[in-house]
């Protein structure tokens, strides 16, 4: 049992290694265009050069600061409004139609409007990221509060729980699993939007690096930057998974 588990774990790694090996071999044999598909070893060397010359670290910092400032500005209000909407049907009646109308709008499409309002500087980029983080956080949190079984509220009321006690002992922990999955969605969206905004209008950040590499046809830089972006996305998910295991022990173990 344990052995097959370990095998399944290593299988994807072996698969990726195999694909890279075939890729490398095909390029060195001249059967694949080194211009469009530079060999993995070339990409790795480029990656190392970008890392040591501090080009990559500076741009990672630029992108990450947009991601996290945007997340804080968007997810915190989303959390608060989500908790309120989950608890109050009146608030839901007011905000549900608004959210249904605004949520499907691709957030990158509002960038021009935001730039008119906030100027072409850093603020408008962060605002777009924030708007994109707001919705998944809000929707998950509200759903998290609403899926709490009514019995738990009855128990709290029966034992004479006051509003604040019900909030901290029932509403918060009861919605936490979905709040955290909202956080994961918000983080992924934040990265997506930060890169998208940088592709369109920025002088630094991973998105602008990708765009610059494409314009100058430096494909090995393009691949190295893409790999970096993917690694960021993966590490976000690992961090949230770790957080979930720490904060929601009653849920994680049930799934395991």
């Amino acid at each position: 049992m344990k052995k097959t588990m370990r095998l399944e774990r290593w299988l994807p790694v072996a698969l990726v290694a195999g694909i890279l090996a075939v890729w490398e071999w095909q390029v060195s044999a001249g059967r694949m265009s080194a211009l469009f598909f530079p060999a993995p070893s070339t990409i790795a060397a480029t990656f190392a050069r970008l890392l040591t010359t501090c080009v990559l670290p500076a741009n990672i910092v630029a992108t990450l600061s947009r991601v996290f400032v945007g997340l804080a500005l968007g997810a915190i209000p989303g959390l608060i409004l989500g908790l309120a909407m989950g608890s109050s049907s009146r608030l839901r009646a007011v905000f549900d139609p608004l959210i249904a109308a605004l949520h499907p709008l691709p957030k990158i499409a509002v960038l021009p409007l935001i730039m008119i309002i906030f100027g072409i500087g850093e603020t408008s980029k962060v605002v777009v990221v924030a708007i994109a983080c707001f919705f998944p956080m809000l929707i998950s949190t509200a759903a998290g509060v609403r899926q709490i079984h009514p019995i738990y509220f009855e128990v709290a009321e029966n034992y004479g729980g006051r509003l604040l006690q019900v909030f901290t002992r029932v509403v918060l922990p009861g919605s936490l699993p979905l709040v955290l999955s909202g956080l994961r969605l918000a983080l992924n969206t934040a990265l997506l939007l930060a890169i998208a905004v940088e592709l369109v209008s920025a002088r630094e950040g991973l998105g602008s690096m990708i765009w610059f590499a494409w314009e100058t046809l430096r494909t090995e830089e393009l691949y190295a930057t893409l790999a970096t972006t993917a690694a960021l996305g993966i590490s976000f998910n690992i961090v949230v998974q770790y957080l979930t295991a720490k904060l929601v022990p009653w849920q994680v173990e049930r799934e395991g």
């Binding site: 019995i151 128990v155 004479g160 002992r169 029932v170 009861g174």
Partner: peptide, 20 residues
């Protein structure tokens, strides 16, 4: 479904006193 899944046995049993 009467006991809170997010509380340990100890916190569940102490819940009424906590509310008081």
């Amino acid at each position: 479904h009467g006991v809170f899944p997010w509380m340990t046995v100890l916190d569940n049993v102490a819940f009424g006193l906590e509310m008081q």
